[in-house]
Design a protein around this nucleic acid. Structure first.
Lengths: 154, 154
DNA sequence: GTTCATTTCGGATATATTCCTATCTGCGAT
DNA sequence: ATCGCAGATAGGAATATATCCGAAATGAAC
């Protein structure tokens, strides 16, 4: 739909502004990496981003993908899923949202939920450090992995 | 405290029963790996488990640690944090609980919260697949990383 | 005691990430 | 428009991480 591509362009614009603001150069490679992330709904890892963007920019090196992704993360223009740097998966959506994960295939999907957005943090947790954000992870098995035989009876 | 070591022994007992039940042998190495996980509150990765257990079992091979951890995961005796197999971090706590992560150093801490345990899943998410469990991630910066100058005034 | 799953060990392999350096380029100054 | 340079890239090598393999030794369970 149109609103979708509009939203993507908005994200790209925000990216460009963020890069300029940080004083880093807006290169063709960076823009294409950004764009790939913005259109993807599957939280790709670095390898996947590289593979996809190469279709449009055949000379793109994997190194550039890694450098760009970590830089964007440092600038706060993207986030990662999970606490690990190794095999991280990236997310252009910096607004509050939550995730569904398939424990079999690793599929990740975003969703929003007003109730979840309003969760507060227990006192005990506040003593651990400064809290930034609260996110809900829903774990299960995706439709494809359950044997995708349509809506199951029982 | 006493309740702590009691709880650990309970977990170890549960492990032993689980192994027996699955028909696999209860070896010294497996027991020590289990025990290390049970006492740890930091969700170690395989490498860390190996390093720690080696202090007590110097001949322990890394290979055995990996085999054991994935086996325990398959048996449902432990869980992992995040959807990734590579560099996974492990958790002996299979009861409902939630996590605090430090986005700087990767520190992970468990906590429990009755309110979070009762969260239900939006309809839209149920269409994605079969839901297993809901977990809350609290992200922030831990006390050590904020500059650990004791409890901050403001 | 016997049996057989398991462990060790070294090395092979696969994957993931970062480093190195010659070359290239965005962009501010001219 | 074009120049110059700091910063960026490509490509491949180097490193780190994770996993697998096979042969021989070990030890848990009966």
């Amino acid at each position: 739909m149109e609103s979708d591509s509009t939203q993507i362009e908005q994200r790209v614009q925000r990216f460009c502004a963020g890069l300029r603001n940080a004083g880093v150069k807006l290169t063709h490679q960076r823009l294409e990496i950004l764009r790939e992330l913005a259109v993807s709904h599957s939280h790709p890892d670095a390898e996947t981003v590289h593979r996809q963007v190469r279709k449009r920019v055949p000379t793109l090196s994997l190194d550039t993908v890694y450098r760009t992704l970590w830089m964007l993360l440092d600038l706060g223009l993207i986030t990662t899923l999970g606490p690990f740097r190794g095999r991280a998966r990236f997310d252009t959506n910096v607004q509050p949202h939550h995730h569904f994960f398939c424990k079999k295939c690793g599929l990740a999907r975003d969703f929003t939920c007003a109730e979840y957005d309003q969760l507060t943090v227990p006192i005990a947790v506040e003593t651990l450090g400064e809290v930034d954000r609260v996110e809900v992870e829903v774990w299960g098995v995706c439709a494809d992995c359950t044997g995708n035989a349509g809506p199951k009876p029982g």
